[in-house]
Design a protein around this nucleic acid. Structure first.
Lengths: 275, 275
DNA sequence: TCCAAAATCCCAATATCTGAGATTTCGTGA
DNA sequence: TCACGAAATCTCAGATATTGGGATTTTGGA
């Protein structure tokens, strides 16, 4: 915990808040992080004033309102989510399934939008749930379309896990398998993330044709045959390409970033996609 | 922007990201905040490493994955949301309406969960949308149950707005109106937040009987008569009290904070409420 | 009302942050 | 593939802003 600058130290407080523990008293934090008392309180003051933390009436701190507001901002103004929603719904109409839109953040895959039409979803990936970085159709659909250099780096970083899945023994062999995914246009995985569930995924690109996200469909394995998987894969690919195209158009027109929204309902007024 | 300590300066970067502008290049930030270049980059590095910001491939920064993950944490482990969900659904079953669970953060009211059964919602308050602090049934349902001291302070801070609604001319008169709300047990507002929409709300308390949130139902004004409002008000009050009771029980038993969750679906396994 | 615990204040020492300028890296177009 | 310009990072001396022990105030509970 020493050797860090004060910025990192303040922000390290946020790391305390995990699934297992969402409430911390200052004394507990001090024990964990080893800050002097006035220092800790200074840090807490800054975080509270920024709204990232909030103090509970009884005793202790939790994550604050700013977190919820920022997520709202992202949901409401993220072109990827806005353009993706309709396609998620289109996919769930094809088949009882869960359809996910997953964003790639370099070191993390995070579900940013989801729709479900299966009566009893076998696995649940709501917004915010991190996905495994190196297994499953989603991961592969992105890795396969990375520029050579980045693809190699990513394979090396996750070599053990990729080997475990049986994708290949060394970097070159795995890269070849990924190139095959690229040629096919979509990735398929059988029970890699959740046993008994088939995942089919295709990448979404930004203007520079870099993959930034993945559109994915997850289906109970016993409902589905090889041919159907192929058909759905093409369908997913088509929807993903639509999203990429819409994003490109968004960026080309309104460079300002945000989209106007309806003051009454708060819902976003998307530019027409003029397909 | 000067005279602040470095913690505030780092966190002030987050304030740049608003509804109107979710993408900022370092140069734009520098122009806005006036930091020296290496300083800004140091700050950005810290925020990026914490995951609060992410750099877009093209150019610029946006809010990062950590925001989405933290909101997920809060959604998934917030006892208020977990206990409230079933009651929101119960309310939407009574009447075509939108039902909201709104948390009070001292200076902010923020929707944390919502359900809707109206075919065409007149106003939309999804999770994360801030609500006006001093108008509407939600606001009043909380103010009315505040300890005397806090109630007075809050009235004084928002005197102009409260006068504008016609709640009373001075602090004492408004306080009396709030005490009436307290006696009735729920607050009603006609078109204060959204024209033509009736809001009915009752407070949720923590273990110390401090109001921490409000359970609210919003209904199209023309669908509803005085008697029905009274009936629904009592219903909402009952559901809100159930939530308060469940929260008290949660706190009394598992002091650890988090609840266990199902590794397969990621959904939370609530303790039984043993009603 | 009082009491104990929690939170804040004070201030000297100095470790840490700042920022100009040099340098490297990166993205882009030829 | 190379070279160009812009963007990002590094270096380092100076000085300011941060740190933390201890005193003090505030808070909230009995």
């Amino acid at each position: 915990m020493s050797g860090l600058n004060s910025l990192d130290k303040v922000l390290s407080i946020l790391d305390l808040f995990t699934e297992d523990r969402l409430e911390w008293t200052p004394e507990q934090m001090r024990r964990e992080l080893g800050f002097a008392r006035p220092t800790l309180y200074r840090y807490l003051k800054a975080l509270r004033e920024a709204g990232l933390l909030t103090s509970l009436p009884g005793a202790g701190f939790t994550l604050g309102p700013r977190v919820v507001e920022m997520d709202f901002l992202m949901r409401k103004s993220d072109a990827l989510v806005l353009r993706g929603q309709a396609r998620l719904e289109a996919l769930t109409a094809l088949e009882p399934c869960a359809a996910l839109l997953v964003r790639w953040y370099g070191q993390r895959l995070l579900c940013v939008a989801a729709e479900c039409s299966a009566p009893d979803p076998l696995s649940s990936y709501p917004r915010g749930r991190p996905m495994p970085l190196a297994r499953g159709a989603i991961s592969r659909s992105i890795m396969a379309f990375l520029p050579r250099r980045q693809m190699t780096a990513m394979i090396e970083q996750n070599l053990d896990e990729l080997r475990g899945i049986g994708l290949g023994a060394d970097v070159e062999e795995i890269a070849e398998r990924l190139r095959a995914v690229r040629r096919r246009g979509h990735a398929v995985a059988h029970g890699e993330v959740t046993p008994g569930v088939v995942g089919i995924a295709a990448p979404v690109f930004d203007a520079a044709r870099t993959p930034i996200a993945s559109l994915c469909m997850t289906i109970a394995g016993n409902r589905i045959t090889g041919d159907r998987i192929e058909t759905l894969g093409r369908e997913i690919r088509a929807r993903a390409d639509e999203i990429s195209a819409a994003l490109g158009r968004d960026r080309a027109s309104g460079e300002s970033g945000g989209c106007p929204n309806d003051p009454a309902t708060g819902r976003h007024l998307l530019q027409p996609e003029d397909t």
